[in-house]
């Protein structure tokens, strides 16, 4: 790896305060991401995987209800503590996000084309022909008939198409890093595969880095380069994907892999987390 990675996260912690109670959602999270690399952050709901990704650009409540500590360096520039107007440039412009439920991330009262155009106008003021750029980004995510889709409202599209539109919107700003937070959880398996194939192709063609957040080890095996497994707000295990899929040192990682039903391997019972974790305690 080169001396300076694209993204370097060190000892990141996120603390939420309500009244006099403090909840530590993520603690001591560190990882590096090179250009064109895919990192998968795996964990259950509540493990802190989404919160630590949102913390990169502080898409979280303001101080004092939410406190961040540690360091997030993008191309050597410290993002934590950056003033709001500069952060706004980073959000979407350099680090773009797509979320689990495309239906709730899109604004229902504007057309797809308008929403993508808005992002383009904001982050790439040099682009004159916004409409052409919108059409181009929609065709890049393999949407048939992009002119028609640009004039449609979110409710007129299926879940898979909505997610494609979200990806088009994220890409329209030409980000260096795409954070995909459970991008396929709300979708059917066949659509899930299409979206994952699409992300793999975009990464290959654009050399974009991806942080993929998921609870399902199944979808990362052929997709990610590195894995970080989060449990109770901490990274309990990390390494190259082949290595972790082969041997897991932490029982939690073992459990997460063991609980997935696999084709052609019918077992009497599925392994659950408590089966695996009880043994080690």
């Amino acid at each position: 790896m080169s001396a300076e990675p694209l993204l370097k996260v060190q000892d990141l912690s996120v603390t939420f305060r309500t009244g006099d109670r403090a909840t530590v959602a993520a603690q001591g999270v560190s990882y590096e991401l090179a250009a064109g690399e895919v990192l998968a952050v795996v964990g259950e709901s509540g493990s802190g995987k989404s919160v630590s990704a949102l913390a990169l650009t502080r898409l979280l409540p303001p101080e004092p209800s939410c406190a961040l500590a540690g360091s997030v360096k993008l191309d050597g520039v410290e993002l934590l503590g950056l003033p709001e107007e500069k952060l706004a440039k980073v959000r979407g412009g350099l680090i773009a996000y797509i979320f689990q439920e495309p239906g709730t991330s899109l604004n229902p009262v504007y057309t797809i084309g308008f929403q993508i155009g808005e992002a383009v106008a904001l982050h790439r003021p040099d682009i004159k022909d916004i409409k052409a750029e919108v059409i181009r980004s929609l065709s890049e995510v393999r949407i048939q008939d992009p002119e028609r889709v640009a004039n449609q409202y979110p409710h007129e599209l299926s879940g898979g198409m909505q997610q494609r539109a979200m990806i088009a919107m994220a890409l329209a700003c030409d980000p260096k890093i795409l954070v995909a937070d459970e991008p396929t959880t709300a979708l059917d398996v066949t659509i899930q595969k299409e979206i994952m194939d699409l992300l793999a192709r975009l990464r290959r063609e654009r050399g974009m880095s991806i942080v993929l957040i998921t609870h399902n080890f199944g979808i990362i095996a052929n997709f990610a380069d590195k894995v970080a497994v989060m449990w109770k707000g901490r990274i309990v295990e990390s390494g190259p994907v082949e290595q972790i899929m082969r041997t897991q040192s932490h029982p939690y990682t073992k459990a997460l892999i063991a609980c997935i039903p696999r084709l052609g391997q019918r077992r009497r019972r599925l392994t659950t987390l408590s089966d695996e974790l009880k043994v080690s305690r």
């Binding site: 259950e44 997460l256 609980c259 997935i260 039903p261 392994t271």
Partner: peptide, 14 residues
Amino acid sequence: LDVSVQAEVVNLLQ
């Protein structure tokens, strides 16, 4: 459901 929870519910149904 999360895959880990999915396994528990499937086992319960069985």
